[in-house]
Amino acid sequence: MCILFIANKMRDDYPLLIAANRDEFYARPTAPSTFWENHPHLLAGQDLEAGGTWMGVTRNGDIAALTNVRDPHNINKNAVSRGELVANWLEQSPAPKGNAEQSAYLAKLEKTRQRYNGYNLLFGNVNALQVYNNVNNSTHSIDTGVYGLSNADIATPWPKVTQGVTALSDYIEQQSTINDDDLFDILRHENKAEDAHLPDTGIGYEWEKALSSIFIQTEKYGTRTSTLLLVDKNNTLTWKERRFSDRGETLETRAFSFSI
């Protein structure tokens, strides 16, 4: 399902901060983040079942990340895997992609939106990001501010989205320096929403409750990875991925850093 928090142009030392969780069935085979052999400019994990990815970046600062839209009544079992949308954007020419390339890709997303189950796609580069939602065929520019994106459109204030946006906003306003572990802690919040504030997406009370926290852990499904993407004032990009077991234990933290 996944959740993303984005702080854009809110600090001089870190103009872009993205903190994200990937939620998935524990049994789904996954490769951890690395530069892809066939696309050495592309850094991402990989879904070994369908071949795509949920979030990635390139050496030139192109970015893409995906969240599913939760709508169990409108699932096409023959739909194309949504993970290819992230890979398709990042696998393109390793040269930096500007407004023309973003506009062309958006047009492609709009044209093919019926091929996929519901999704939000964050894509662009470190200087210009936007979110496309294929359910309502809408586009939202990521301007100056702090944003949260979960499994509805970007304008829907689910409790865990509001909680994460508030926590990240308070942190970047109050702290003199940015600490990676503090950002990982925000992604580790496990408190559930109060019943009165639970969304009703058609999956039943037990699942709505279980999925209402930023960090998810159930018997078969939960948060598999937390990822930080930070771009500093010198255009140095830092990527950190923390992987978890089905018991929520940290298995590994991978770190990459390069100049854009």
Rank of each mutant, 00 (worst) to 15 (best):
T53H: 09
H39Y: 14
M55L: 11
N21V: 06
G61K: 00
G52A: 09
M55N: 09
W54M: 11
A65Q: 09
R70S: 09
L42E: 06
A44S: 14
A50M: 13
A19L: 00
V57E: 03
P29M: 01
A19T: 13
G45L: 10
A44N: 11
L43T: 01
V69T: 12
A44R: 12
F35G: 00
R22V: 02
D71V: 04
H73N: 14
A31S: 14
R28K: 12
L43G: 03
N38W: 03
A65D: 03
R70N: 10
N60F: 14
L66E: 01
R59V: 13
T53P: 04
G51D: 03
H41Q: 14
E49Q: 14
L66A: 06
D71T: 12
A65P: 05
E49W: 01
D71K: 14
M55V: 07
F25Y: 13
H41P: 09
M55W: 03
P29A: 03
E37T: 15
L43H: 10
Y26M: 09
S33T: 10
N68Y: 07
D62Q: 11
N21Y: 01
M55K: 04
L17A: 06
A44M: 11
A50R: 00
F25M: 11
D23Q: 09
T67R: 11
M55A: 12
T34P: 00
L16P: 05
D71W: 04
G51F: 07
T58G: 06
L42M: 12
T58D: 05
A44F: 12
H39V: 05
D62F: 02
D47P: 10
T53F: 13
T34H: 15
E24K: 04
W36A: 01
I18T: 04
H41K: 01
L43I: 14
G61T: 08
V69H: 13
D47M: 12
A20W: 01
I63D: 02
S33A: 15
G51K: 01
W54S: 08
S33C: 15
G52V: 05
V57Q: 07
D62T: 10
A20T: 10
V57F: 11
R70K: 10
M55E: 12
N21Q: 04
N38F: 12
L16T: 02
A50F: 15
A64T: 02
D71L: 07
N60T: 14
G52C: 07
Q46C: 11
N38L: 11
F35Y: 15
R59N: 14
H73P: 06
R70P: 05
P40K: 13
D62K: 03
T34R: 14
N68R: 05
L43N: 05
T30L: 03
P72M: 10
N60A: 15
D62N: 11
A31P: 03
A64F: 02
R70F: 00
T53Y: 12
E24H: 03
T30F: 01
M55H: 06
P72I: 08
T58L: 07
R22T: 07
N21L: 01
T34L: 09
